[in-house]
């Protein structure tokens, strides 16, 4: 799962953004530089979610991401720079994060407590595949009591 895809996903039950946690493996796979696509995506991105994701995967691009997304009034200047062939640190960071950083194993946590598993690079966002840690804990407790 690329971080681009992560930014488009929400919890199937509560419709909230999901936090990446307990990352077990990350792949970096370079692809062709796509500044026009990245520029197009900027206004649609959940920027704080992207920043949090960059931290979760311990990306070295975190520092290249400003606190807030470039505003619509800043975009034309960025477009101009791209058309004239400039490499912008912001777009380099977005290229690396959105298109080249893959979470191979990990979890997607909803603020309501349940989480969804990313296995083999494919996130499972089915409501009935949600893992509810409190239920799991109480089930385990029940098993322990039975066993003793």
């Amino acid at each position: 799962m690329r971080l681009l895809t992560h930014n488009l996903l929400i919890c199937p039950v509560h419709k909230k953004p999901l936090a990446i946690r307990n990352v077990s493996a990350v792949d970096i796979i370079p692809v062709e530089y796509q500044p026009r696509f990245l520029l197009r995506m900027i206004p649609r991105l959940d920027w704080s979610l992207l920043r949090a994701a960059a931290v979760s995967v311990e990306s070295d691009c975190v520092d290249a991401l400003p606190e807030a997304a470039p505003s619509p009034s800043e975009l034309p200047a960025l477009e101009k720079a791209v058309e004239s062939g400039d490499r912008l640190p912001l777009l380099d960071a977005l290229q690396r994060l959105l298109l080249e950083t893959h979470v191979v194993g990990g979890q997607l946590h909803c603020e309501h407590g349940e989480f969804y598993v990313i296995a083999d690079g494919i996130p499972n966002l089915l409501a009935d595949a949600a893992v509810n840690p409190s239920e799991t804990a109480s089930e385990q407790a029940a098993c322990t009591t039975e066993g003793s």
Partner: peptide, 24 residues
């Protein structure tokens, strides 16, 4: 090979959809 192709398990039903609106 350069295509950015991704797969995700998502139920394509209004109530259990796990994709943000107007993302595509």
């Amino acid at each position: 090979v350069g295509a950015v192709l991704e797969f995700a398990a998502v139920d394509v039903q209004p109530n259990s959809l796990a994709l943000a609106p107007k993302s595509f």
